[in-house]
Write a protein that binds this DNA or RNA. Structure first.
Lengths: 355, 355
DNA sequence: TGCTAGCCTTGGAACGTTCCATAATTACTA
DNA sequence: TAGTAATTATGGAACGTTCCAAGGCTAGCA
């Protein structure tokens, strides 16, 4: 770490024997520059290792070509693909991506967002934020904001999310097709989309005439949350025969709790996650879950953001993508249980074969 | 997204009836301001929702109080805790953290770093970068750079890493204590610390008089890499009885390959990972692995960075933390195998008990 | 030859802050 | 009461870019 002052555009201009305006033009790839001068400028740039100061650029241009991305939880591989999708699009149109995380703490998330706002990023993508805070809504009046993972409320905010109700229904229906009735849910607490998934679960249960069996354990979109929610559920008598966790991380926590209780999956209890993260796909785990097109979600979020940045659209958009159930090995028929009459055994058998 | 111009310090000054210098003092919490004026400035700030422009600040202050963090792979939960450690320290001393990722592609990593440099971050923490590129070394001449996960080469770069040789030795010794001899390694390719781990493995094998059994499958710090490396190893005859994967992600990929081959862990083959990520701790997986103090690593990296930023130290530091073996359920005695004489059965038994 | 058009190049204003020197005010001391 | 010190407030320069209007030059054309 030497103390040499970073070269500025003036240093380059002096070295190349031209004006700083010309250097600026060359660096930005302007076409109307004579080949000789361009060459000498580029030589000077290389010799001095000149790197334009993005702050000075941003100040005068009143834009940064940076989009900020808030990632709610670095422990959740869900965001890896989402961010990859964002970056792919951003790269294609010359935008840079800067990330930040609030570690699932609303206050920290607000601070992270504030940092982005102070930096005057051109747009903000919020990956499953804990809240659509007042700060966010205010911010969205002055720059483009897209929320991923929950439907935005404010009209100035766009969103990209999957259809949680449809996903939840698919899960419940899948369990019912095996003959389950006591299908419980571990919710995602304050997490993005958690309320939608819980309500989706409840409505699905009602639709399938299982409203009397609705049970929700309090959890979170984390392993710890899933663990706690599962313990709550496992303590109930009669015990649920299937658990639908709000996301894959929670499902893993639930699995830990289930195994700690000496139960087997899926023989004693079926388990379903959400998100179809790389974790769920692990052969050893082979978690039945709901797939979301993560890369597409990221791309779509970036597309929406760009539309707003460019001002080609002012109307809010709520993109809803269709989720798909991915059946793996953590779901199966419920155990025989004398306390409850077996449920439509024929249907159970046929579905079990279909798997 | 309204088009209202963001309020500047001048707007606040006008509204509060004071000079912009005074506004600047109040906003930065200077003490020598009369209570009345402070109050009116703060009122104006609130009314206008004034947020200082970090670019303008950075331009004149010649520092940003931002540290950039490159995360090599968002799929690897290893970095979640590292970043948490960095953030904890940063928050304590009023620095902001901005992240970026190159998705394990050296070229993208360089671009991400360039973005940070253009932004004139005060320091850069590189989380397990694919390379210590020329760009990084150059950059380190002008700002503080700390590398995590591999010992830095350049004198101007600090580093925080665990003792990979010690970790590898612990793994190999653990396997040997069970009676394994054909202990193979899946390397981490170009990943940070991968070479050190591979060499550590090879030296450990030599030290334990198993040099003739050294086998390295080509892999990467990813599930796919581990899968491929494992397939390569499983095709060998005689087959290894234990596999030491370069990290937990690779171990999971290896586990998939092992199960695909119809083998059981640990009965047919033992498996060890590295990093002790949350994945390894999953009860259902229960992977024997090597623990790194991730949060401490992050904190230490931030501490080193701050020393450099503040200029209180110019000598390079290579912090090496001690790893610890975490024995779980994926390691056990090798299967009986008539082609090789059993190895010191007494020792095997005693160690098995110790577990 | 003079005029126009087009290309290339340039100086200086602007962006929104902080820093610095100095001014204005008040308080304290001899 | 004057002089000094301490406190609070201010205007303008500076930071490193881009933008804009305008200048110089060359070439084409009548």
């Amino acid at each position: 770490m030497k103390t040499g002052r970073r070269p500025t555009i003036d240093d380059v201009a002096r070295q190349a024997g031209v004006s700083k305006s010309l250097v600026s033009l060359v660096v930005r790839g302007d076409l109307h520059v004579s080949p000789e001068r361009r060459a000498s400028v580029l030589r000077a740039v290389a010799e001095l290792r000149y790197l334009p100061n993005a702050m000075a650029q941003g100040l005068v241009q009143k834009k940064t070509r940076i989009v900020g991305v808030l990632v709610s939880d670095l422990n959740n591989p869900f965001f890896a693909d989402v961010v990859a999708g964002i970056q792919a699009r951003a790269r294609a149109i010359g935008y840079r991506v800067l990330m930040s995380t609030g570690d699932r703490q609303p206050q920290h998330e607000d601070e992270a967002i504030e940092t982005m706002l102070q930096l005057r990023v051109d747009g903000l993508i919020l990956g499953s934020p804990m809240t659509e805070s007042a700060q966010v809504v205010r911010a969205s009046k002055e720059l483009a904001v897209v929320v991923i993972g929950r439907p935005a409320r404010a009209a100035s905010v766009d969103s990209v999310a999957d259809d949680d109700a449809a996903g939840a229904l698919a899960v419940v229906a899948h369990c019912v097709s095996f003959g389950h009735r006591r299908i419980a849910h571990i919710d995602g607490g304050e997490g993005a989309g958690a309320t939608e998934r819980r309500i989706g679960y409840e409505e699905a249960m009602r639709k399938l005439r299982l409203q009397s069996e609705i049970v929700v354990g309090r959890g979170a979109y984390t392993e710890a949350g899933g663990h706690q929610g599962a313990r709550e559920l496992l303590d109930r008598r009669p015990r649920p025969t299937a658990i639908f966790a709000a996301n894959d991380l929670a499902a893993i926590g639930a699995l830990n709790a289930i195994e700690e209780a000496g139960l087997r999956v899926p023989q004693d209890i079926s388990l379903v996650g959400y998100d179809n993260t790389s974790l769920a796909a692990m052969r050893h785990l082979s978690l039945t879950t709901v797939h979301q097109p993560r890369h597409d979600i990221g791309q779509m979020a970036m597309d929406l953001l760009i539309e707003r940045i460019r001002g080609v659209r002012v109307k809010p958009r709520r993109v809803v993508l269709a989720p798909t159930l991915v059946v793996r090995s953590t779901t199966g028929p419920p155990p025989r249980d004398r306390s409850v009459a077996p449920v439509r055994p024929t249907r159970r058998t046929s579905k079990a074969k279909a798997r």
